[in-house]
Structures are given as C-alpha cells and as structure tokens.
Design a protein around this nucleic acid. Sequence first.
DNA 1: GCAAAAGTGTGATTTGAATCACAACATCTT
DNA 2: AAGATGTTGTGATTCAAATCACACTTTTGC
Lengths: 243, 243
Amino acid sequence: MEERQFTCHCSTERCLHKVPLFASLNDASLESLTDKMSHRVYQKGEILVMEGQQPLGFTVIHSGSAKAYRTTSDGKEQILYIFPAHDYFGARFLFTEDEVPYCVEALEETHVCILSKQQLKDILIEHPKVALELIEAMAKRMKRLELLMQQSGKKKAEIRIAAILLEFAETYGTQENGRTVVNLPLSQEGIANYVGVARETLSRKLSQLEEEKIVEFTERLQMVVLDTEKLIALSSGEYELNV
Amino acid sequence: MEERQFTCHCSTERCLHKVPLFASLNDASLESLTDKMSHRVYQKGEILVMEGQQPLGFTVIHSGSAKAYRTTSDGKEQILYIFPAHDYFGARFLFTEDEVPYCVEALEETHVCILSKQQLKDILIEHPKVALELIEAMAKRMKRLELLMQQSGKKKAEIRIAAILLEFAETYGTQENGRTVVNLPLSQEGIANYVGVARETLSRKLSQLEEEKIVEFTERLQMVVLDTEKLIALSSGEYELNV
DNA sequence: GCAAAAGTGTGATTTGAATCACAACATCTT
DNA sequence: AAGATGTTGTGATTCAAATCACACTTTTGC
C-alpha cells in the first residue's frame, strides 16, 4: 500500500484555479486565498462530516470524490449528492444551519481544501462576482433537485433510474468512437440508494436495459451507453421498457 | 365583482421593504429600485409565466399567492412550489436557463413587482449584502428540496403528507389558544399534486389523521393541527398510522 | 491462496398505493 | 331555485415495487 499522504499540493498547484466558482479572481487574490485555506486528505470510507456535527466549512474537492447521504428511519441510506473532483459542498448548510444535515463520506482517496464560513463570507462581500457565480452554481444544483423531485413524485422506477444514469454519463462519461463509456462512482447497491429504490429492483431494471441494448455493463463499475436517445426518452416517460 | 385593478401601490407602500431579501438596502436605493420595477396584477387562475417561455424576470409577490407546477408525461400536474405573499421567484431560472422550467399560476388575485435579469444582477454586484441574502434564501429553498427528496425516496405516502401539512402549518398557520389554525392554499386535489400521490390516497390518509385526532378539518380549506408532536413524528417515520 | 465479506441475479410472495367506478356533497351560474 | 360543475369519500380491483430467500460471483484481507 502507498504511504498515506497528509498534505496536499494546493499551494503549489493553485487548486482553486480549476474551480469555476473562483474563475473571476486574479492570481494574486487566488494565491493569498489558497494560503489561508486548510487542507486535508481522507481515505476511502472516511467521513468528512457527520450528520449533526458542526459544519467543516466550505469544502472544495481537490481530487477524489465523495457521497452525501442520510440514514432514514428504517435504517437505509439515502444518497443525496455525489461530489466529483473540483466540485464543492458546504455553501448550502453553512448558510442555513447550525448542524450538517447529512454525512459526507469519501468514495476514494480524496483531497480537500476548506474555507471557514467567515472566510467565505468575506470573499463574497469583497468579490461580488464570486457571489454571482455561487448563485449560479446553487441555481444549477436546485435545477437538478427540482428535476429529481418531479421524477420521484412518479412511482415508475425506470424513469428515475434512467435519469440517474444520464447524470452519471454526463459527469463521468468519456466519448470513445461514438459510444459513451462511463466509470460509475458507485456500486449497484449505491446507485439503488441514490435513486431510492430497492437493490433488487435496480438489478432487474438494469438487466432489462441491457436486454434492450440501451446500455451495457462491460466490467465492474463501468457502463457503456449504447442508445442515449432511448435513455433520454425513458427518463422523460416517453418510452417504456417492454417486459 | 370588484373592479379589476391594473396598478399596484408599490411605489407608495415601498413593497420591497417587506421582502427580507432587500432588508439591507437603505430607503433611498429601495425607492429608486421600486420605481424601476414593473408591476402587474393577475386574477385567480391566470398564468404568470408559462413553461418554456422567456422568463418574466425576478418576481416579488406583493400580495396574493401562486403555485409553480409542471405537467408530467402522463398528464398530471406536479406542483413544485407554493409562493406566498412577500415571497419571490425567478432567481433560480434567471441564472440557469433560457426558458422557464415550469408554469406559475395565481391562486388568488395576486400583485407582483418584476425586476429584469440585468437589474437584478446590477443590484447584486452593487450591494453584495443583497447577494448574501439571496444565497441564504436559496440555501433555505434547497434545504426544503433536499428534505422532500429524502422523503420521496421512501414510498410511505403518510410521511410525505405529514411533511407537507407541517410546511403549511408553518407558512399559513396562526396560533389560537394552543391550537394551530391553518388556511390551506390548495384544495385536496392540489395538495395531492403537491405531495405527488393520488387524490384518493390523500383523502383516505387525511381521514385517518382526523380519526387519530392529529388534525381536524373544520371548514373547506381550513385545517386545525391538534397534535403537532405526532405530526412531526409521522413525518420523520417514527410513528405510523394504525389501520 | 484461501476464507470471509461484499456485491449481484432471480424467483416467490406481500404490500401499499394507483386506478377504476360511483355516490354524496358543495359551489358556482344564471 | 335548479342545473351544471367541481370537490370529496369509499369500496373493489390491479399493479409495480418492496421484501424475503437463497444461489452465485467477485473482491478483499490476511
């Protein structure tokens, strides 16, 4: 096993540069900001923040990825967000509460940079353009939530599954001679918890999707989208899986 | 019937004063802003914006209320938001898209004040505190969406119903010697569309709630909450309705 | 390399809510 | 006041997904 790393290379690499949120800052302010941030490394399975705890702060994922989830009353985990590399979290709950509303857990080795609430507020007041960016970013996240809401109102599992697969394709997919190859961030069990259906239902639906040549599961945690059109039609309810 | 009103009293009443979003603006900037806004009046059932259209702008509800909904592929309406008086909408889609993602319809006679995208942006750049307020407001709305998401992942209808009733109690309830009297903004049919269950299911569940003396429906569009604790327990899944 | 653990596929059964189908009210309208 | 229209309650039936149960496969850790 590799030696565990306790520092990240943020200061040298100026990791914030890759985050669209801070795109409008010039290099000088960016560097002074980076110096002020604290940096941490988490191994796969480690918890970044625990539901009910004090918020860590505004957290930028430098590398790696994480999932945010809550444990429901019947003991299952409902995943709310997957944060890929260069994404961030914390703005939403830094501003609304006292305690974090969900657990965030690393899905792999993950390096993060953290900004305290006050630091973030200072930046937003000083650089209104960053605030505007943040508003836009939040709007995008809301858009996704609204879409999911709409779909989850409906019972059909396949609609919601198709929507999540499309989300994955967009976030983790790469084009390879026409087909979209997607490295899934979660196992089937995890996807089921994200979609909010039973693991068995997901397994059955995925088999159907393969039968109908809409997607293909080549190896563990890898999916190839064969027919994006159909997947979109499915997610909007225009198309249904035949038995 | 009363004569239809085509102008609102914004300029004299400084309606924006009541909107927490603009609380940090001084009277002078508030008044100059108010003059720049356009004002409109809608009757019950009139559409403020249509799904797919160009956004109206950032819209503040001066008086009245409205619902935002989408029509799903199977022809039902899924209500996403209810906007009460002094609430506002538009920030979310002004920043993300080209077209409005849902219909907004007046639930009663409704007076609104509208700010164009550019006007809003200018204010946000000039008054970073307003931007901070907007971020907080969006965070709150996201919090609600996340909560609903979580609950809609679960199948139990009563959990989601309880959550919505609590939301209504908070927004439209008034304390009257211990009990909370709530003037509902929607009919049963509307509530069903908001929760995302069949109208019949809602009716049955509400009857059960009355049987168990948790709420009481005194007159049309009026609910009295008798046992808030139980309603909360129900919404979190700690308590279940006995047949 | 082998055992334990984690993840996956598939049938049989149960269950909760959607759907269908009306009857009973309430509310607009003229 | 009476018909029309919209709203609500309740039974019977259907149906999709959860649950249960277990075989099978893959990964992981020592």
